[in-house]
């Protein structure tokens, strides 16, 4: 059967550890990792602010963020391309088809996910907690830190969702990166290419590698998260 043979061949290819595959995997990790870090640095404060601040139009902004959580990567890819192509308004930067613009596109995908889930993480806390902290004489900044600490488990989930969203997407990196061998080819775009060439074993091998990488990153984050959760189960 094709799937059995492909799987067997895929594992053989993985064990052979090809230098080109490693470079592709490393670029995937670098691009999506950087995009996730930037999204966390911007998205978490934004989510916390949206949860705690009161201002006109707040519901509308939250609606936008929540919609952004389902932003199709192809839409992001097209928009970024139109901006950064040589004829586009940002074309003078000359970063089209480079890892830099891939990071930018992935930030646009991960940012709303991180912001939206951070927002929900803070909002699910009991409103009494905030009042209690304030009444016990905590400053506003101290209160914010307290709330973030209380919400750290769902906050970590927000990071994982952001990373999971970008490491696995193919639509935007294909369009803005161009899948150029040795420069902008990442695991997902390489998989599309291998599939198109009819090399299903190689595509499958890359897919297994991608899942393994995703799993490792999430396992690290989860262990941090569950250390925090153990308090609740008394373990």
């Amino acid at each position: 059967m094709l799937i059995v043979n492909s799987l067997r061949e895929a594992f053989r290819l993985l064990l052979a550890v090809d230098r080109e595959i490693l470079e592709i995997a490393w670029l995937s990790l670098r691009v999506s990792g950087t995009a996730t870090v930037i999204s966390v640095l911007l998205g978490m404060p934004a989510g916390v602010f949206l949860a705690l601040a009161r201002f006109p139009g707040k519901a509308f902004i939250i609606g936008l963020v929540n919609t952004g959580m389902g932003l199709p990567p192809v839409v992001v890819g097209l928009t970024v391309s139109l901006l950064f192509w040589r004829a586009g308004p940002m074309g003078f930067l000359g970063i089209m088809y480079t890892p830099a613009v891939m990071v930018l596109a992935q930030v646009l995908i991960a940012l709303p996910i991180v912001a939206g889930l951070s927002l929900a993480a803070i909002q699910q806390l009991s409103p009494g907690l905030r009042l209690q902290a304030l009444s016990l004489g905590a400053s506003r900044l101290q209160t914010v830190f307290l709330l973030v600490r209380e919400a750290r488990l769902p906050m970590l989930a927000a990071i994982m969702a952001g990373f999971g969203g970008v490491i696995s997407e193919v639509g935007s990196v294909m369009m803005v990166g161009g899948n150029i061998k040795g420069h902008t080819r990442v695991l997902t775009t390489a998989m599309v290419l291998e599939t198109r060439m009819g090399r299903f074993e190689m595509a499958l091998a890359l897919g297994i590698l991608l899942l393994a990488m995703s799993f490792t990153v999430n396992a690290i984050l989860t262990s941090v998260q569950q250390r925090g959760a153990r308090r609740w189960t008394g373990g």
Binding site: W85, R86, Y97, G178
Partner: peptide, 18 residues
């Protein structure tokens, strides 16, 4: 020598840009 790994339309676009 740039290897795009994409279809003809995309490769033409990349050629034009580069």
């Amino acid at each position: 020598y740039i290897s795009t790994g994409q279809g003809m339309g995309d490769t033409l676009r990349i050629s034009s840009e580069k």
